[in-house]
Nucleic acid binder design. Structure first.
Lengths: 112, 112
DNA sequence: TTCATACATCGACGTCCGTCGATGTCGTCT
DNA sequence: AGACGACATCGACGGACGTCGATGTATGAA
């Protein structure tokens, strides 16, 4: 696993995960465990083109551009977002592999 | 911070989560975004009886009993664990509803 | 070149978080 | 009654986190 955000771990309802497995997924959860970052991912994922530029994301929050840029960097460093600079604008897109890695954590814990 | 005049990308349409929705799920994610707590939930969920007493959980980590107790309280306060005191021992069990709430978050975000 | 825009980075501030030792509380046994 | 064990709580410490204003970098236009 050379790439961040591609961790695949034991589901919670199976055998217990090891400490190494936990350390691998926790960065993803930590990146998502913030209201601003969670909404950022939601905004990008729900956009028609599957991506969004920082200028639009900036207007969706009542925060400084520096703060939004910081949160995007955290999400990008965690491997949750792809970054693509086109001219003056920068576009972020969600990485399905990273999101599905987190989803696989809870998949087998299906209730009724 | 809003002088449109020129569009840089497709507008953010679609149904992104609201700020209130984010504030509702983030506490669950924050509680799970810790290697010790994630392993605690994993250990409890993977136990045969579906529950585990603190004495057993304590031995699984190289941490103080006070620290484990603190993490269990965080998970319990977040609604992820149920607490049941039987005699001298305290048993914790995972709440399926809470886990499924988190799971549904990624089910809608990443279509299978 | 000069200027304006879009975004990243820096430095600093206050706050929250994980961990510990010490202590408190409750239940059990003798 | 007293003593012991299982957990919880308290207070404190160091480090990490979210946010900001200011500044830096790069692209495009005048």
């Amino acid at each position: 696993m050379s790439e961040p955000g591609l961790a695949c771990c034991t589901p919670l309802s199976g055998t217990a995960m090891s400490a190494e497995q936990a350390e691998q997924v926790v960065p993803l959860l930590k990146a998502l465990a913030d209201p601003v970052r969670l909404r950022l991912v939601s905004l990008i994922a729900s956009s028609a083109s599957g991506e969004a530029c920082v200028c639009d994301l900036n207007d969706a929050f009542d925060l400084t551009q520096a703060t939004i840029s910081h949160h995007l960097k955290v999400l990008h460093s965690a491997g949750l977002l792809d970054r693509d600079k086109r001219g003056v604008w920068v576009y972020y897109a969600v990485r399905p592999a990273a999101l599905s890695a987190v989803a696989s954590l809870f998949d087998t814990a299906v209730p009724a």
